[in-house]
Design a protein around this nucleic acid. Structure first.
Lengths: 205, 205
DNA sequence: GTCTATATTGTGATAGAC
DNA sequence: GTCTATCACAATATAGAC
């Protein structure tokens, strides 16, 4: 059940409820009845405000993606020194995931399953990593860090940041950890990843 | 459409088709009609061989998981030296993913969405990492490698191995890589991850 | 704008002939 | 074992009163 506020408009209540249900169950698994229940209204109202399930879905996706992506890329293009930038990237990205732990799996899923319905909502124009790439390449040529392609570095960091959250149930079972212990590991994730990445690429640290 | 062979029994044709459809669309998105079409039969036959969609789903899951998991864990409990074991783990795991690139997302999805229907098929008994843990802890105490928890190391490696494959469409768009370039990066993944991990944990290498 | 009731379609499952 | 035809129900969507 979503946090409901009497001051919210019906439309806002629907959007909050729909966001939750879609993220939890995906486009295919989500039921309009469940969204209506979570919003505290009936099915007919959903269709009154949003003509169809697909339109509602599109609205949610647009809202999510316009917020989630740009925040990370602004940091990569900032003036921070490389090592500080890497640390801050890890910290900020983890904070984003922690605030929306079920978002990544939803995005990856829908991206693979309904790519056409999804890509058009991405704010692609603002996404650049040229400044970051220059920084990494320069550090490599100065022999400050080991040779690595900037995009591979981003890929490695993003993997270690996001994956444990989406693979949480799997890892708990497979590595035989109870949820409490696993959450404790996740809470230390900043330090673990920062140490790992810094050790991996810097000759001295 | 799945590769069909006249020598296959109807049951085998169903299983191959169902595996493909379930992996592509998940339990919720999969339609019995589509499975029947892909198998070249009609819906009634599905229910003749497997009483219900859920039973068919369970059969597929069981088959997939009984093959995918144990292979990795046998290696971790083998007698290989630590560094060789890490390299081989990365190589084998990547080979597994490459052979079934859409499997991980399916597993993560269903694990989150239908945990009860999923976990009971996991061969949990054979999954142990005590030998590997001892090896890592020993290397740490001998100051061969930097301090790290064994399960964090597995988590980091698994993340870097699996995530780029499931985030492929996302990364292509967000990092502005065409598929050809991204596939080239993926083909070098063994070396990239091995270098990264070895550099991250070994004091000298 | 909000509701109840209903239409319409999709989907899992079954009956029964062959 | 395989098929066609059909059921039963669930889910999206709409009609119409208030």
């Amino acid at each position: 059940m979503v946090q409901l506020d009497k001051q919210q408009s019906t439309e806002e209540k629907i959007l909050m409820a729909a966001r939750q249900i879609f993220i939890d169950r995906g486009m295919d698994g989500a039921r309009m009845q469940d969204i209506a229940d979570a919003a505290g209204i009936n099915k007919a109202m959903l269709h009154y405000y949003f003509r169809s399930k697909e339109k509602l879905y599109g609205t949610i996706v647009q809202h999510i993606m316009s917020n989630a992506l740009p925040a990370m890329f602004d940091l990569l293009e900032s003036d921070l020194k490389l090592k500080d930038k890497l640390k801050q990237f890890i910290i900020n990205y983890l904070a984003l995931i922690r605030a929306n732990p079920f978002l990544p799996l939803f995005i990856l899923n829908e991206m693979n399953r309904h790519p056409d319905k999804f890509v058009k909502w991405l704010p692609i124009k603002n996404l650049k990593v040229s400044r970051f790439s220059d920084q990494v390449n320069e550090a490599v040529s100065l022999k400050l860090i080991r040779p690595i392609e900037p995009k591979v570095l981003i890929m490695n960091m993003a993997s270690m940041i996001v994956f444990p959250f989406i693979a949480r149930p799997m890892m708990c079972v497979v590595l035989k950890m109870d949820k409490k212990y696993f959450d404790q590991l996740l809470s230390q994730r900043e330090d673990h990843i920062i140490d790992f990445v810094i050790s991996a690429i810097y000759y001295k640290n």
